[in-house]
């Protein structure tokens, strides 16, 4: 089993991802340039990471151009065959633009770039990213985005709730999901979701920036630990 971290022009969390997966978790991890047309050497026992950043300068819409990079055809095929795909921040936006995840990420309600530590609540344990967390568990994870306001129509939100596809919601330090803790205006305070088949995951906060004590916060570690275990079991 191995991890592949896609690098687009403008990705800036790719090295953080390689560091966390490769050095902190000790997993085989390689970078994949977006111009590659195939995921050669990867099987659905492996995992593809779409990292954060500003792919193509966020032109047109965040993720809209990256979604048509040559490698994305293979990533879509990989996901449709059941391979694990995890997108963080810009990666989440790209996966939504590629229709691997439902909904879209709109400009933050207050028009500001938000860069701070926020609290998120794990909503399920039925996903690789959340299996190491108990439902209701609160994590402090940094966010850094201008387009993070999750939006989907009512029917889609109903389905997400119904199918237990909501991974994380923004909350306060005590785990209360309320208006005051909804910093970007996301529908239902949604911070992360998965697809119906539970093999594609996306979240706006950055757990890769909070996965070792030297950074003063290890809350994100469990997310990758759970994912790595699930990928290993799939193999």
């Amino acid at each position: 089993m191995k991890f592949g971290v896609i690098v687009f022009p403008g990705s800036n969390c790719d090295d953080d991802m390689v560091h966390v997966l490769g050095t902190v978790l000790g997993q085989e991890t390689v970078k994949l340039w977006h111009k590659e047309e195939s995921l050669e050497g990867f099987t659905t026992d492996d995992c593809i990471i779409v990292p954060g950043g500003f792919s193509y300068g966020d032109y047109v819409r965040a993720g809209a151009v990256a979604r048509f990079s040559p490698i994305m055809k293979s990533v879509i095929d990989f996901a449709n065959r059941g391979g694990y795909v995890f997108g963080i921040c810009n990666g989440f936006q790209i996966l939504c633009e590629a229709h691997l995840l439902p909904g879209a990420l709109l400009r933050n309600r207050d028009q500001k770039f938000i860069a701070k530590n926020l609290f998120i609540r794990s909503e399920t344990d039925n996903a690789p990213t959340n299996r190491r967390l108990s439902p209701g568990q609160v994590l402090k994870i940094p966010v850094a985005h201008a387009e993070g306001r999750y939006y989907a129509d009512e029917e889609t939100i109903f389905q997400l709730n119904q199918n237990d596809q909501i991974l994380f919601r923004y909350c306060d330090g005590a785990g209360e999901v309320n208006l005051a803790s909804n910093h970007n205006g996301s529908v239902g305070n949604i911070a992360g979701i998965c697809n119906e088949a539970r093999n594609v995951f996306g979240m706006m906060p950055h757990p890769e920036r909070a996965s070792e004590m030297i950074l003063g916060n290890r809350d994100g570690y469990s997310i990758f630990q759970g994912l790595a275990e699930a990928v290993a079991e799939a193999g």
Partner: peptide, 9 residues
């Protein structure tokens, strides 16, 4: 439909 607009938003 594919690139310039996202019909969700």
């Amino acid at each position: 439909s594919k690139l310039l607009a996202n019909v969700i938003m």
